[in-house]
Amino acid sequence: MSKSSGFSVLQALTFAVLLFMALPNLIILAVSFNPEATLAFPPTGISLDWYLNVFRTPSFAAGLQQSVFLASISSAVSLVFGVLAALAIVRFRFFGRQAINALVMAPLFVPEVVMGIAMLLWANAVTAISNTTTLVILHCLIVLPYVVRLVVANLQGIDPNLESAAMLLGARPMQAFLRITMPIIGKGLLGAAVFAVVMSFHNFTATMFLVGSRPTLPVAAYQYIRTENDPTVAALSTMMMLAGILAVYLMERWIGLERLVR
């Protein structure tokens, strides 16, 4: 078929939209090297002061610590819980399987503010529980559906005859799982873990309800933006973007990008 002029219009439109989407990130990148203390654009020179200032800002350091803690604990916990649940869903046929599958996916359908207030009220009711523990549970809940979905997809891609073959060759069921299935889904699990870390790290709205006196990094950035007016946040953003690009790269290697969204 002939490629008419519609082609170039479509192309122009596509790149305009992509530019619109990327522009905030590009601006942040440019501003982060600005030597002046205002959020001016274009920058008047190049300076790394604001990068140093990120590390000198106590709320960022504390936020980073809190975020890393939350992300690592909650992704580890939800990975374990998620893999177990995915195994049950893929490998067993049992009463209530569909309902359980739906329940595990339920957090996806609860608006974040609702989830935030629900966890706040739960923590109030339980009383003897620290803010941080509640946050861990919240983040586990947010990440769990994604982990289950990715692991289920991974497990479904494996020929169940592989484990049977291993067992016919004398492996016990546990050995067959650990030696055959685990190595095959290993990369998928790594990818799911990275995805979980990213989702937890970036969670903002639900987290806002529970942060109390220990903000996470996005919350700290938010509070900084609302009060200060210098490019420190731009420098912070740039560093987080780099981490994000690394995460995308790792996920591409470990699970393939297409699989994340299907």
Partner: peptide
């Protein structure tokens, strides 16, 4: 690129828009 944006921090994206 889309995925990078999909995974990038929402707060910081809004900050970029402020700029």
């Amino acid at each position: 690129g889309l995925l990078a944006m999909f995974l990038s921090d929402y707060v910081l994206k809004m900050f970029g828009l402020i700029l």
